[in-house]
Design a protein around this nucleic acid. Sequence first.
DNA 1: TAAGCGTGGTT
DNA 2: TAACCAAGCTT
Length: 408
Amino acid sequence: MPWDAGRIRAIRTRLLDFYDEGRRDLPWRESLDPYRIWVSEVMLQQTRVDTVVPYYRRWMERFPTVEVLAEASSEEVLRLWQGLGYYSRARNLHNAARVVVEAWDGVVPNTVEALRQLPGVGEYTAGAVASIAFGAPVPAVDGNVRRVLARLADDPDPTPARLRRWAGALVDPERPGDFNQGLMELGALVCTPRAPGCARCPLEAECRARREGTQELRPLPRRRGRVRRAVAVSLVLHRGTGAETEVLLERRPDDGLLGGMWSTPTRELSPEAGNGVREGAESDRTKVDEASPVLETLRGLLRTTMEDAGLPFHSMPGRKMGAAKGADSLPPVDHAFTHLRVRYLPFRIPLVREDGDPDGSPDPSPDTSFRWVPLVARGGVPLPVAQESILASLESEIGEGAEGGPVP
DNA sequence: TAAGCGTGGTT
DNA sequence: TAACCAAGCTT
């Protein structure tokens, strides 16, 4: 343990003073309601405070209690999370709310061990909720705390177990929630990853890295894996005209990338084909000649989509299986995930309903994951950012030539 | 233990 | 443009 009892007392006092004077006014600091603290901690996982604030306000307006959240549909829950990323957080929070209502009679459990059992609640979140909402003298080690402690102890790469031990010894038993938030606040505002403000740090006198001049080298950056690159074809089937336009969307499986979110049917190119496309791609539209792997992928995607959604090919008069060649490309959309960079190549195909043909473009049967959704309102379904972008370009394309022409 | 999982801001 | 980062969790 790098600090004796006297040092620990000094750290507690100075940190709590710092927090009392400099704490930011944030919406989740307006009450100690465990549910509200819990939601904020989940939203803040790997996400900036400024980004979270508006989401948090909307969430609390719609889901003010754990009971209200538990009764909501997963569709609406994801819709309110749309744009925040890491969507498993929303699914886990929703499921955890149901657990709290059913197994805990609607009362959020007050121990680290019990909180830890809830889906989406790990060691950090359990400690944060237990200390902030319930006053439990337990540590809460996030990225900020890791950085602050690594510098205080001048340890290049402290293990999680060591960090928990240190934080547990330091936490103020009288005000554990404020102490833990103070540690995080210090990391966020003063003890920053680059150019830390040591001159205004309340713990400067206790900081070994500062004394050694190594503060900017602590802690060691986490090495990250390679970012995979991919090219994918997206099929934008639409029917109707103008404000009545609808697009065919598919709900993605609950596990994996963008789980539970809705999307135009999309298929990745093989890695080799994807590389070829990226090398040749310059224009803002995708050219598809007969031998193009893009066209092959689009053909396969079109066929399986029509089959799976139960749409008859005669809803594309004169085109049938040749419909893919008649597809119009929309502008490519480049999107970067944490571990994946995708170039989406969207193609649109209008499905027409001939007079007297009631099966022109029927609704998919309810047991499929497909649905026709109004383009303008997006049907209220949750969409990933890249899909919003694809649908926006369809809107602007359809808007031209419709009433009034393009918007100035 | 390491990889998978989003997005937007900053450098 | 690319790399890096931000109140982590799950498998």
